[in-house]
Amino acid sequence: MIRLGLSGGIGAGKSTVAETFIARGGYHIDADKIAREVVEPGSEGLTKLVEAFGDDILAADGSLDRPALAAKAFVDEEQRQKLNGITHPLVGARTQQMLSEAPSDAIVVQDIPLLVEGNMAPFFHIVVIVGADEDLRVERLTTLRGMPEDDARARIRAQATDEQRRAVADVWLDNSGTPADLATAAAALWDERLVPFERNVRSRTVVRGPLTLADPDPEWAALGARTVNRLWAVVGDKASAVDHIGSTAVPGLAAKPTIDVQVTVADLDVADALADTLADGGFPRVAGIDGDRPKPDPATGSVDEGRWGKRFHASADPGRPINVHVRAAGSPGGEFAIDFRDWLRDDAAARAEYADVKRAALAGADGDLERYVEAKEPWFDDAYRRIAQWKRRESGR
């Protein structure tokens, strides 16, 4: 299965997207609904709330009087933490139960209003945010829900900003049009990206990016950061570092529009043990790539081929080409990946030179990725020597 995190600010139109996904077969987990369920009359949650805050938080019919609870729970941080300490574990347990009951081929749609505020984005295969500007959202809240304008604006501004939401959004669905427009966009996303994504994860199929050079894109840094955070969530403490590497990590450099990320682990046995974990997380292993091209040690001229091994994974998401290089800590390939990125960031002449090398390699590759990679290798061999010199100069400063 894949897990989709769906969110958006109040009045943005998230419910329209959720309804569209459900109609197309999505397995829906509604965080708000669960939060209400765990404090229903007779529940463990309601019992614990009464014990913590008193029986005057109950309505006449024995149900939770939410305004009365809010008057007690939101007076200070200590009381807020007391409330969260009761409800959050119950919501989490019910969510995990529903996840365990989902079909193995499900696209799980987790509808979470405070996904951004709760820093939950990295734990999903993909995050979809529904957005609309503040004035339009206020208009909807006042006309469709009868909410006073001051209240509507206060609620909007108490939530995450659009900038914060965009930082975690793999997909931004703009809802400045009609509900029908939004439903159409959501349906296209489901059919063209989400269904193939789930199928690829289940079948361990990777999606390789196009063999083309794109102009530098400021969004690469944001996508790299999201990918790093997601991989940390997938591999956890099995990694000692996760880094955005490659050309998309170098501002101002033309690049294939594919994000490269390096996961550093203790050794390749750990890398092998992570194969299924990464695949389940949306990054299946690519067969036949078990190492980098060995390069001679700049100091001795010797080549230790055994230290250049790696494991290579790539994204199963058809809308997001990503390469994941899993290398051992202290390996020359792992160190070179970081040093190469930092050298290009530091040296404008080397950056321009590499851009020319890539253009020439692309022109001669005739669309063949292996030929493109092979054509650059002699330059990489020389860059390995030059980077060693650059590091010595940097260390002497």
Rank of each mutant, 00 (worst) to 15 (best):
P196Q: 10
L231V: 11
G209P: 03
A254Q: 09
A183M: 00
T212G: 00
R199W: 05
P196D: 11
P251D: 08
A185P: 00
V261R: 10
R193H: 03
G209V: 06
V207Y: 06
F197M: 05
V235W: 03
T227K: 03
R208M: 14
Q262I: 12
A187N: 04
E192V: 06
R193F: 00
V263S: 06
R230D: 05
Q262C: 13
G209R: 00
D260E: 15
I259T: 14
R199V: 10
T212S: 10
K238W: 07
V207H: 13
A185R: 02
A222S: 13
T212R: 10
S240D: 04
G209D: 04
A187M: 00
L213N: 11
I259M: 12
D215W: 01
E219F: 09
R199Y: 08
G246M: 02
G236I: 10
A188E: 08
V242C: 03
V201P: 07
P218A: 15
R199M: 09
D191Y: 05
L182N: 00
Q262R: 15
D215A: 13
I259Q: 11
R208E: 14
V261P: 09
T184G: 01
V195N: 01
N229A: 14
S247P: 02
T184M: 00
H244T: 04
A221N: 07
P216G: 03
D237T: 11
V235I: 06
L268A: 14
A187E: 07
E192Y: 06
P216K: 01
E219R: 15
A183K: 00
